[in-house]
């Protein structure tokens, strides 16, 4: 067993998990350095939640090994739980306890010396002091997420596992949430966060893309875009949906995606795509401009490839 260095927060190799006969996570290996915000991307049901649960001891892997903060994920779950803050996808604090009572409960479970004081400090940090005695169930979606994050960070963990923390939260609350995550990372916390949002992915230091339980790529945003070797044209003009259908049917086009008023057309074969662009440019209604692929282009392309490839 290779001991993970002190600057490694998560290191797993060959993680595999079955639900019945279905392989949900397939031979997944990854490595996350300390102090990093690591984004976990992938479509629904790709195994993100299952992987996070295996990391914090909530699920037992069927194969593979790994460490979390230097503790073995198979045998030292208790040590991991004491040092990891896990924020579930669904709000899982007690709706019939007040905000203060929830925080004090968490503080006591983690054995903090002054649970009341710790909860009070957390309330202040969260800006919830004046609503401390409200029932948690009465909070709006955005505030619930903030409270959940506050509860996770209360016991001063070294690693945060956040499972789609901003799903269903408005853009302003989302931005505040991410500012907070960056503040936490700067103070030395490692954050593993799963998300569907590309703007969030771009705020991560590193990202990994998972589809059908397999980790397809990982790296910085720039690395991933470069590695995809995708040529992209951005098309503007009228009737883009109709054009999109025609392009999808054109051999050589690998991905067509509509972004508001623009159509992103991508292919790995740059020469072929130039040819297609020339052909379609004959129709003066549409303007074809060579563009840089975005992270989203790359991921949609990956998703299409993963979906098309035999499992």
């Amino acid at each position: 067993m290779t001991a993970a260095g002190p600057n490694i927060a998560i290191e797993v190799e060959g993680l595999t998990k079955f639900f019945g006969k279905k392989k949900v996570v397939d031979n997944l290996s990854m490595r996350v350095e300390r102090g990093m915000i690591y984004g976990f991307l992938g479509p629904n049901g790709s195994g993100k939640t299952t992987t996070i649960r295996m990391l914090c001891g909530l699920l037992t892997p069927d194969a593979g090994r790994g460490t979390c903060l230097g503790y073995d994920i198979l045998t030292q779950q208790h040590e991991i739980k004491r040092r990891v803050g896990y924020m579930t996808q669904k709000f899982s604090l007690y709706g019939d306890l007040t905000i203060r009572e929830n925080l004090e409960f968490v503080a006591r479970i983690y054995g903090l010396r002054e649970p009341r004081e710790a909860a009070r400090a957390a309330l202040e940090r969260l800006g919830l002091l004046d609503r401390a005695d409200q029932l948690a169930s009465e909070l709006s979606g955005g505030w619930k997420q903030r409270l959940a994050l506050g509860a996770c960070t209360l016991p001063d963990p070294a690693l945060l596992l956040l499972d789609e923390p901003t799903a269903g939260v408005d853009p302003k609350a989302r931005r505040d949430f991410w500012d907070e995550i960056h503040r936490l990372a700067e103070s030395g916390l490692t954050v593993l966060v799963s998300t569907h949002y590309m703007d969030e992915a771009e705020r991560c230091h590193r990202i990994a893309y998972i589809a059908a339980g397999r980790l397809l790529v990982s790296g910085t945003t720039a690395e991933i875009i470069a590695a995809a070797r995708l040529a992209t044209y951005i098309v503007t003009g009228p009737d883009l949906s109709e054009l999109s259908e025609r392009l999808s049917a054109t051999p050589g086009v690998e991905m067509v995606a509509l972004f508001g008023v623009a159509l992103h057309v991508s292919s790995r074969d740059a020469a072929r795509l130039d040819e297609i662009a020339r052909d379609f440019s004959k129709d003066p209604a549409h303007v074809w401009a060579k563009g840089a692929p975005t992270l989203e282009d790359v991921f949609i392309d990956l998703m299409i490839q993963a979906g098309g490839a035999p499992q």
């Binding site: 909530l58 004491r82 579930t88 669904k90 709000f91 899982s92 968490v106 479970i109 054995g111």
Partner: peptide
């Protein structure tokens, strides 16, 4: 049923 078990299990309580 309320979904609070997941959080409870993720915490260091036996």
């Amino acid at each position: 049923e309320r979904g609070t078990m997941e959080m409870l299990l993720a915490m260091p309580v036996n």
